[in-house]
Amino acid sequence: MSDLPDAARQGPKPTGRLEEAEVVAPSRWKTIWDADISYSFRQSPVAMGAAFVTLVMVLAAVFAPLVATTNPFDPSSLNLMNGFSAPGVPNAFTGETFFLGTDDQGRDVWSTILYGLRISLFVGAMAVAFAMILGITLGLLAGYLGGWTETIIMRVADVQLTFPSILVALLIFGVARGVIPIEYRDQMAIWVLIIAIGLSDWVQFARVVRGATLVEKNKEYVQAARLIGRKPGAIMLRHILPNVLSPVLVIATISLALAIIAEATLSFLGVGAPPTQPSLGTLIRIGQDFLFSGEWWILFFPACTLLALALSVNLLGDWLRDALNPRLR
């Protein structure tokens, strides 16, 4: 230790570059491809299959007017004579063939499914978005501010959690029916549905966000921001929010599947989408009237679509939860 050159003894001044800092910046595409999450996606056939099915359904719903053979809600395109055509069998009166058959009014089942999918996906996505915004906001406020704000928000959440969400939705739906004048009812039905499902679903977002916020707010980067005089709103939005989003993403996906089913259930019970704008649930309700008279396809195909959609979105959510959970990796 005695014969060291002077430079080594003193050590260089820590200015200038450190070798270790040289991380070559890869292209954006490469970064995404290499990320753990996309790797785990590529490793999971179930996730890829589910994503494929979901994607196809979303595209089919968005481009329904292009993919559908008829517009089932345009009365002029309907021919009552086409009613009850079996799938793939030429109609006895008109000779037209419908590969998924037609319903009692001669509507092409394939086209009604496409349009029904549209309504189902729209209601589901909007309801989840509404629940998410509400839940995240309340969760952030409860977690960051604490005290009375937290007590009130979380007690309300607890109370709501003791009711089944479908009951909450029914209740809200009932209230809305009483409040909205009859001539607007059909127009507003979709929005009432969205709010009903959304309101019944915000609690889990709020809980998860509050939990994550409680963890994040004690981290030192939040203290550093408080120190320089950042306002609570800015800290919540700019600092904490980005760091609590990954669990929210998982819940949002699983909620989407649940919201689609909730919508179908409400519509099936006759309190959801009106017959003029039928969703998958409405189609199933209509279809079950004919199940026992032999026209199985009116029920069967919408039901299969609903099942496939809910299942694949749910599988995606399950995969996402596992992929984002570091403990399982």
Partner: peptide
Amino acid sequence: ARLRQIPGA
């Protein structure tokens, strides 16, 4: 006044 340091990591 200064500690001897190993540069880098």
